[in-house]
Design a protein around this nucleic acid. Structure first.
Lengths: 206, 206, 206, 206
DNA sequence: TATGAATGAGGGTTCATTCAT
DNA sequence: CATGAATGAACCCTCATTCAT
């Protein structure tokens, strides 16, 4: 072992402090208006220390997005299981609804990750950022699709389109109530999601 | 006379020079990396002159987005008429295809406006920015819907969802070929668009 | 006549507009934070026009100080006459009190002229600035001293000292209540003024 | 150890360099005409370094005034002791004379602190600025008054008035010889100071 | 590993002044 | 006389990054 347990724990603690402080400041005052000095000071470490853990401000932002997006999906997934929702279509709607509700109550999270939701989940780069994450998003998805009797032409593409539709419309609806408040938009949105799924469904070969 | 013709023309010329230079630099090197000094210098005016016409960098960016988005839609609309495309669904698909093709060949435009496409077209603020624009987007849309025998639950919401789906998916597909190259994504995307439309269609009352 | 009446009146009007606007802005937001553009715009004239009447911001400020200081003294003098205050010492105390009361209710005036009170009244440069003023301060003072049976070693110096003492102490007392609120300072101040006068009094030779 | 000795000494040196350079430039060319860039460059540090030690130009000015005013008084006080001047009235006149003489030979100092002399000595804010100063002005004054058999109604107010009278009159007399050259003004001024003191004296209760 | 003083390029913005109209 | 668009020098201040300790 290269580093003993104590030192490693200390390192992890510093890194976590920087990450959570960065998230706090990014959402509180915007990324542009947050300096590395701000983050370091509030995290209780020296400015130079920041560079021991992250390349720059955008490095830490990307890691945060990946982290938060994964966590959000994991929560939604857990809720689906807990509630015993069955049927792939209903499961997906349930997840969408879960995410929208979370965004509605946590606009700070909405502003931070919604525009990068699918990136945070599907994009391959994410892997680079999630060495320390334990959530296997693609695996979970694959499982869910396998468990269903429904078959789709290209499940990943379908999910990508749904995710993009969900995140970009709810951003505008929640924050600006444009073109409708989120409550009014939901039926149309869920209708559209179901429509997309059905348009990509293929008969079960079994 | 408060402003004679010569001076007014001169002003318009300066403003246009600033706008087109800004677009050039924003797309060439990014907004963050473009300074007002850059814009002014390259436009051949003094730095202070910039502030006679625009509040700041984001003011000029917003005006540019509104301008470019309007122009793109106007072009697409003209093409629909020129080609004599009939049927609202086909018209919308045609416009989507037109826009995607344009984005595919002009990635610089894609990077600049795709994330703000629906904003550039629907949002009310736009009006503030388009004193000098002559395109009446909402009017054109209303007309097209009136001319069709199809009726929709909430046409504006439907268009908003389609626009968001289109712009956010094609950004990823064109620039990163994720989750598929744009050519492969198209059939799914158009299928989804048609599905959304049909899900929001209501029987013609006539 | 070089200028006809109408044009001359127009000029005077513009100049007055600039003067009063400048005073308003100087006192409202400070001289440093007031630009010539501000003054011109709010006065309803073009920026270039400012330079037809004044050399720069400090030119207009000096003219204003002279104007306001003269006017204040003239008012105090008129009040002395109206009230029929007799006796030079009492007259001077009355004037001091009048000025302090004015400063107390009009802190904006205090901030603007108190530090330049004696300059505004005695300094020779003033003459340059008061072509258009009609108040002959030195003349009024000379008269008052002649009318009194008291004689002083050097009346002008005495007045200068009193004016400086008055203006510099009341600035601090009124604005910051340091070292005492103006109400509490008054007895000491008037006592000191009387003490100074008596220390410079010489027996009447008559 | 958070800061080792070497680094601390280096810091103090930089701060002092900035302070003395600022004083030099402020007096040489005026505060308005001195930019922070000027100060930093001439002090041999980078522009950004200025902001490590001072908030802005007015921060450094205030600290300088407090510093210089304190030092001047301390010198005058030392001279009083050295010369063995006795009697509170004579001591104060001696200090006044010392200060005037210093101002006469050092007009640069006059221009810089005279208008803020009492502020520099009495105002409570000063304390904020003088963490690194060792002169306890209020303490020295209290002692001197206690040592005297004279008693005054309100010693601090008296000193405040004397200081204001002294500084505002000598500014005009030294720089512009208005209304009299300082040499000719002195007798009147000292006479006035003594008059003020006597007017505020109360019989010793002992 | 950790620090934090020092850097200095570079950004946005203001504004007195000019001058062609 | 009057205008106001244009100028461009100058300013303040921030901040990512380095490096000696």
């Amino acid at each position: 072992m290269k580093t003993n347990g104590k030192a490693a724990a200390n390192k992890k603690q510093k890194k976590d402090a920087l990450l959570s402080t960065a998230f706090e400041l990014f959402t509180l005052q915007g990324i542009q208006n947050t300096s590395i000095a701000d983050i370091a000071e509030r995290a209780g470490v020296a400015k130079g220390t920041f560079y021991l853990y992250f390349k720059d401000k955008y490095d830490i932002r990307n890691r945060l997005i990946a982290r938060k997006a994964s966590a959000l999906f994991a929560e939604a997934d857990a809720a689906v299981r807990r509630e015993g929702v069955t049927g792939l279509e209903d499961q997906i709607i349930y997840i969408a609804d879960f995410i929208i509700d979370r965004f509605t109550t946590d606009r700070v999270l909405l502003g931070f990750i919604s525009k990068n939701l699918s990136w945070g989940i599907f994009k391959s780069q994410v892997l680079t950022y999630s060495e320390d994450e334990e959530i296997d998003m693609p695996g979970i998805i694959r499982e869910a699709f396998a468990a269903s009797h429904l078959r789709f032409k290209d499940p990943e593409v379908m999910l990508f389109m749904i995710t993009e539709l969900l995140s970009s419309t709810c951003y505008s609806a929640i924050l600006y109530e444009e073109p409708l408040p989120i409550g009014d938009l939901k039926p149309y949105l869920y209708g559209s999601i179901r429509a997309i799924m059905r348009s990509m469904e293929v008969p079960d070969e079994a």
